[in-house]
Design a protein around this nucleic acid. Structure first.
Lengths: 209, 209
DNA sequence: ATTTTTATGATACAAGTGTACCATGAAAAA
DNA sequence: TTTTTCATGGTACACTTGTATCATAAAAAT
């Protein structure tokens, strides 16, 4: 092999340009040529590293999924050792709501893919549903853990509440995106909703009273 | 004027073809020519009645908004005279969730436009936010009415709860669309959520405690 | 009966699209 | 040193796109 170039690095560099363009012009408006131009390379190279446009779009979605997973892991990892489940979930809200530029980008990207996946057979449905499903299980597991620690009402059906939570996250996220409500308000509403799930009576859950 | 053709009828006929194509191929894939073919007319006529493609897309969104308003009015109007606020809201859920074909179409269309509006300057943001905003006020007003009738907890901040409700409707709707959860489950979750807002203790709310 | 207006058809045009193909420098393998 | 393999450039092809233009049947207005 000659030039010994790092394919993975090359690919993620191109995907960076891809994401930039999707955010700016919309997923539908991105072309092989525009990606090449944005990445500062030739059209031929975009073909070389992704073969087809469908490949590029699929890789874009896969990368989106991976990146968001990593960010979430990192944020949870950065939490203090003795954090409550409540605090962990709050961190998820901050991460998932489109409050900052990164959050807006993610929401836009994901929703665009969700819409595209509804009509485009080149985007398999499982690629869309996979991420939310993982998140769903994770939230349910957190709620269950919170239940056993006495943070949340023991009567709750954690699976149901998890669905409601991620539905609420996405729905409020969309409300923020279109400018119906601000990110701050959405976050506050999400937290108040979570407060409703708290264990009844007793200010400190760890002290049984 | 010669042929004396009904422009409005013509336009809504073409918009019907437009919607059919958006649902089948996605908003991004609809072209002037495909709309013409689907409507069984010539390309020239699509131009004639909508001038430009931007005009077609804007009219599509406007029609979507109008149709959904009308459907909602009709459903509420069809409710029995003595319906509770709770029942009215339940009717909204059934109408808004993508449970049947029509519901799925609406959710897909609206979300596609919301995504498009994020990057396309030809779709003014107010056209996107207008519908949700009207719905928001309506739900808030219903909740308030329900409060004064004793159906809902008097302590509730109805405006906040309205935002949570429409966020939940949209979020769960998306969950149904991508196949994360079924429409039945989503509806059940929405209703249980509404139950949480019920007035505490007291079987007959109209009799004070 | 002539003129004007309306509704429609056909088509041309420039731009942009994804993909395929051919060429080539350079580095590793032989 | 020759040969093979990899990374890249350039470009051509067949389509599709939105829009503009020219033409015309027919009906209303004059």
């Amino acid at each position: 092999m000659p030039k010994t170039v790092d394919h993975d690095e090359r690919r993620s560099m191109i995907l960076g340009a891809f994401v930039t363009l999707v955010v700016r012009d919309g997923l539908h408006a991105v072309s092989m040529r525009s990606v090449a131009a944005e990445a500062g390379i030739s059209l031929r190279l975009v073909q070389y590293y992704f073969k087809t446009k469908a490949g590029l779009k699929q890789s874009g979605l896969a990368m989106l999924e991976k990146l968001s997973s990593e960010r979430w892991e990192k944020r949870v990892g950065g939490l203090p050792e003795a954090s409550t489940v409540m605090e962990t979930l709050r961190a998820l809200f901050v991460e998932a709501l489109p409050t900052d530029k990164q959050g807006r980008e993610f929401h836009l990207l994901w929703t665009a893919y969700a819409v595209l996946g509804e009509t485009d057979p080149e985007i398999p449905n499982r690629m869309i549903v996979e991420g939310p499903h993982r998140l769903l299980r994770r939230v349910a597991s957190l709620l269950k853990q919170g239940q056993s620690l006495g943070e949340f009402d023991a009567e709750l059906d954690v699976d149901s509440e998890a669905v409601v939570l991620i539905g609420l996250i996405h729905g409020l996220g969309t409300a923020v995106m279109i400018g119906l409500k601000s990110g701050d308000v959405a976050l506050k509403l999400l937290i108040s909703h979570l407060d409703r799930l708290r264990a009844p009576r007793g200010p400190d859950p760890r002290v049984l009273r």
